[in-house]
């Protein structure tokens, strides 16, 4: 009786553990990861399946487990996941070309409206003042909408910037943990180049936003003056409060001080670098350069059960 009791006492905990683990298996028959290697393998599977958010979390867990053999590969793939997340954000975000074109169109309309308003005020012609006022109001609305669109695009770019900054640091960390891993060093350089382009784009969008804001403010002042000149009976109809200053602080995704320390593309010496607003062509070219084309695929560590061997990964 006594040996039987002893056996039960010793075997019971093992039985319970095994049954818990069996219960924990989900419908897809995947055992939840426990060790660093498990997290890494699961993350790699998700990375291959383009589930970058979940893959990032799993890789973070793998890194946090502080398992020396697994950590360099986990950090490397974490960089991949973050970079891919940032690229996805840009892809899913507003079309940068359209936003840029919209901004320029609104800016051009605003400029025209300002000129017409100034001309009408100078001529002191009532009909022209009314026409200029109506045009100005429409142009201001357009500017406001365009500013919102640019701000939304900047927010997306700002989030991408944060992801890519972290991705670049992850690749550098992977290279530091495993100096033989030249892929990590190369990837870090590539991400930094993309970051520089992104920062350039953000600065240009910021400049465009600032220019549009100023234009809207100027237009607002002119509209105010026009309205003051137009007699009450002749005043054009409009929604109340539309003429008021809309002081939206423009919740941009990125503030100027956040871009401090970011390395821009160094301007070529002697090359004319106009700080003016971008033309649609210029903006399109820059933003096009950021899109991931089909010809460039990111190499991933897709070998389960073994961390990526240094030097054997494909070049980015």
């Amino acid at each position: 009786m006594k040996p039987f009791t002893t056996i039960i006492k010793r075997a019971l905990p093992l039985l319970l553990a095994a049954s818990w683990r069996a219960l924990a298996v989900d419908a897809t028959n995947v055992v939840p990861p426990v060790t660093a290697r498990d997290f890494y393998n699961a993350g790699t599977r998700l990375l291959a399946g383009k589930k970058y958010d979940d893959a990032e979390k799993l890789f973070q867990s793998a890194v946090a487990a502080q398992d020396e053999p697994v950590q360099p590969a986990a950090v490397y793939n974490l960089g991949h996941a973050r970079f891919a997340e940032g690229a996805e954000l840009i892809k899913k975000g507003p079309d940068a070309q359209k936003v840029s074109a919209r901004g320029h169109a609104a800016s051009a309309a605003g400029e025209q409206a300002i000129r017409r308003s100034e001309s009408a005020l100078a001529d002191n012609n009532l009909d022209r003042m009314i026409a200029a006022y109506l045009e100005g109001r429409g142009a201001r609305r357009e500017l406001r909408d365009a500013e919102k669109a640019v701000a939304a695009a900047m927010e997306i770019y700002g989030k991408t910037l944060q992801k890519w900054q972290r991705a670049a640091d992850d690749f550098k960390s992977a290279a530091e943990l495993n100096p033989a891993d030249t892929n990590a060093t190369q990837n870090a350089e590539i991400v930094e180049r993309d970051l520089a382009q992104l920062v350039d784009s953000l600065r240009k969008m910021q400049a465009m936003l600032g220019a549009m804001g100023k234009q809207r403010a100027d237009l607002g002042k002119l509209l105010g003056r026009l309205k003051g000149q137009i007699p009450g009976p002749n005043a054009p109809p409009g929604a109340p409060g539309e003429d008021g200053e809309e002081d939206d602080n423009g919740k941009n995704g990125k503030h100027p001080e956040d871009l401090v320390g970011q390395k821009e593309n160094a301007s070529l010496q002697g090359k004319e670098e106009s700080p003016s607003a971008l033309s649609p062509d210029q903006a399109g070219q820059i933003l096009e350069g950021l899109s991931i084309d089909g010809g460039r695929r990111l190499s991933m560590s897709d070998q389960e059960g073994r961390p990526l061997q240094p030097g054997k990964g494909r070049n980015w």
């Binding site: 950590q71 950090v75 972290r166 640091d169 992850d170 550098k172 960390s173 530091e176 943990l177």
Partner: peptide, 9 residues
């Protein structure tokens, strides 16, 4: 830091 590197998270 999460990793023993200069650029660690």
């Amino acid at each position: 830091l999460l990793t023993p590197t200069r650029t660690g998270e």
